[in-house]
Write a protein that binds this DNA or RNA. Structure first.
Lengths: 219, 219
DNA sequence: CTCAAATTGTCATGAGCTGACACTTGTCGT
DNA sequence: ACGACAAGTGTCAGCTCATGACAATTTGAG
């Protein structure tokens, strides 16, 4: 237990080679994601089986499940990264900024980045996911579940920023929920009316504007 | 197609006998729900298999799936009825009332009714569902999926009430989303901090207050 | 009573997912 | 180098959920 030089996890501050093993693992993982999206685009999410994905990469389906907890997982990998990006962006906002302003800027900023493919997000895959969400309840369910977890994280961050305790103060819960609502409303509108609402970032920005101004009972 | 005397659903306004067949079906359904909740309370949601539920009522598991599309379904039956109640309550609000006021009154009213067991909601089962939601991701996922559908319905109703077209106006989407957010924030707070937030109706009411007043960027 | 429709049981099948165990391959200390 | 140990993988066996097909049963109607 002197050096523990391998560090299975991601922490490994090793500046040196991540090792051949790690690289191989990463390649397998990438190959699985890639093969999965090729098949998804071809035959749809439901019609694609885990075995097909695994076969395409020439690994056993058992191995697939060592990389991803479920078939849905492989389709939603980007959400994890996206969450990371949102958290990082939110934490980097000036501390004296009103919370809703910070949230709005953060979410709109990430949306814009996604649109431009500025982060590691392939717009094609993104679109593929959106269409799959529409006709695969199972995928939608998993996605919503992750969104929920994301919201819990946001609640904690917001509470810290406001300097209140989420155990006794309802505000961080409501604000996190509202922020999600802004995003969801936009996603919802775009899913059902793709002609009217075209730009993610713009739609989200509009949604936040309504949230901030239009919710007190003056119609 | 003259009389359609059987009416599989629940509507059956037939003053006469709905028929022994219908009654039997209803009894089987009720028995399944009842047995399911007994087992859920005993062993938890995940550890309970469909076969056990079916065996407890002495039907085949195949039959179970003719009544419920999934194991999750049987645990979430009440959501359907709850949605009906919310819709009915919302539609009965005065048309000139501000939309947020109407939503707030509706949701708080339903919550209060649930607490008092005024509708057909068994508080014990309700609590059972809440605890199961906390430790069964699959159930949570299905629940969230249903919530999403509920929100789509709310969007349409709100749009109609506001006299706008949801295809071109973002407001009904945002307002429906926000209303859900109010409810979710409350549920979230109660799940994580059951000591502080005790009453559903009160917590929801607080959440709406924050939504209405506290969202414009004045901290 | 008899027939037709609805309901259910039985059987078979497929997909998702997991545990156990053995085998291969990468990694590290000496 | 070499050998020990850990990590990754394949194989197999099995469980649970879910669905289609068909036969047997029950119910309702004439």
């Amino acid at each position: 237990m002197t050096a523990t030089a391998h560090e299975t996890g991601a922490s490994g501050p090793e500046p040196q080679s991540p090792g051949r093993r790690e690289r191989k693992k990463q390649r397998t993982r990438d190959a699985l994601v890639s093969a999965a999206f090729t098949l998804f685009a071809e035959k749809g999410f439901d019609a694609t089986t885990v075995e097909e994905i695994a076969d395409a990469v020439d690994v056993s389906s058992r191995t697939f499940f060592r990389y991803f907890a479920s078939k849905e997982d492989v389709a939603l990998t980007f959400q994890e990264e996206q969450t990371q990006a949102v958290v990082a962006a939110l934490l980097s906002r000036p501390a004296d900024e009103p919370i809703m302003t910070a949230l709005r800027a953060t979410v709109v900023g990430i949306a814009r980045a996604c649109e431009n493919g500025e982060l590691g997000f392939d717009p094609d895959r993104f679109e593929c996911v959106l269409s799959m969400l529409s006709d695969s309840p199972a995928l939608m369910a998993k996605s919503l579940e992750r969104t929920q977890k994301k919201q819990n994280l946001m609640t904690r961050i917001i509470a810290q920023r406001l300097g209140v305790d989420p155990a006794t103060d309802l505000r961080p819960h409501v604000i996190a929920s509202a922020a999600m609502a802004g995003f969801n409303a936009a996603a919802d509108a775009m899913r059902h009316h793709p002609e009217t609402f075209v730009s993610v970032s713009e739609t989200v920005d509009q949604a936040f504007a309504i949230l901030e101004e239009g919710l007190n009972p003056d119609h």
